[in-house]
C-alpha cells in the first residue's frame, strides 16, 4: 500500500455513487428457486413418468428419499445465499444436513430392500451411467444460474458458498431424476447418484471458487 488510510478514505468517498442494496438472501434465493422448481416440474410432467412417482408415494421410504433429496436442494440453495452475505452466521451451512441424512438413509434402505429381494448379483459399475449424465446435465444449468446470482454478493466463505450451490443444483437434479427412473434404487444406482452429486459439488467448489474470486 502506498497511500495512507486517510487518503484512501478520501479517495473512496469521492468515488462513491448511490447504490441499491441487494435484496435479502431469502428473496434472492426464492427468485431463483421458484422458476427452477417450476421448470423442473414442467419438464418432469411433460417428459417424465409422473404416474410411476405418484404410484410409489404410498411407500414411505421412496417418499422420504424423494423429499430428502428435494429439501436438501432447497435448503442448500437458501444456505448458499445466506452465506454469500458477509456477517451471516456460518451455522447456515448446516441447514441442508438433516434432509441430506434423510435422503441418504432412505436411499440406503431402498438398496437394502433391493439386495434382500434380488440378492447380490454381478453389478456393472457403469449400469447407471445414464443417471450420472442426467444429474450432471440437469444440475449444471442450475449451478450456472446460482453462480450468476451469487456473483453480485461478496463471499467471505467461498468454499462453503460454492459447495452448497453445487449441492443444491445436484440434489435438485437427483430429485428430478425420480421422474425418469425406475422406482427403487439398487446399490450401483445409489453409488452413481452420490458420485454425480459429489462431482458437481467438487466442480463448483474448484471452478466456481476461482470464478467468484476471493473478494
Amino acid at each position: 500500500m502506498h497511500e495512507t488510510t486517510s487518503a484512501l478514505i478520501e479517495r473512496l468517498t469521492s468515488q462513491a455513487v448511490p447504490i441499491k442494496p441487494l435484496l435479502s438472501p431469502w428473496l434472492r434465493a426464492a427468485a431463483l428457486l421458484v422458476p427452477v422448481l417450476g421448470l423442473m416440474t414442467a419438464i418432469a410432467l411433460a417428459s417424465g413418468n409422473p404416474t410411476r412417482v405418484t404410484d410409489h408415494l404410498s411407500d414411505p421410504v421412496f417418499t422420504l428419499a424423494l423429499a430428502g433429496s428435494l429439501l436438501t436442494g432447497i435448503f442448500a440453495f437458501v444456505a448458499a445465499f445466506m452465506l454469500s452475505v458477509p456477517g451471516r452466521t456460518e451455522s447456515w451451512g448446516w441447514l441442508p444436513a438433516a434432509p441430506a441424512v434423510i435422503w441418504l438413509t432412505a436411499s440406503t434402505v431402498q438398496c437394502y430392500r433391493h439386495v434382500e429381494e434380488y440378492g447380490i448379483h454381478d453389478y456393472s459399475p457403469f449400469a447407471s451411467a445414464d443417471c450420472f449424465v442426467f444429474i450432471l446435465m440437469a444440475g449444471t444449468p442450475i449451478a450456472v444460474a446460482t453462480h450468476f446470482l451469487l456473483r453480485r454478493a461478496l463471499s467471505t466463505n467461498l468454499t462453503g458458498v460454492t459447495s452448497l450451490a453445487g449441492l443444491a443444483a445436484a440434489t435438485l437434479a437427483a430429485a428430478m431424476l425420480a421422474f425418469f427412473h425406475p422406482a427403487g434404487t439398487d446399490p450401483v444406482d445409489f453409488i452413481t447418484h452420490v458420485v454425480a452429486v459429489s462431482a458437481l459439488v467438487l466442480y463448483m467448489t474448484t471452478f466456481g471458487r476461482n470464478a467468484l474470486g476471493s473478494d
Binding site: 488510510t5 484512501l8 473512496l12 447504490i19 442494496p21 441487494l22 435479502s24 461478496l154 473478494d215
Partner: peptide, 19 residues
Amino acid sequence: EDVVQETLISIHRVRQTYE
C-alpha cells in the same frame, strides 16, 4: 494497516451487500 486498507476497499466494493 494493509489489512485495514484492503478491508476498506472491500467495504467500498460490496457496500450493496449490507442489508
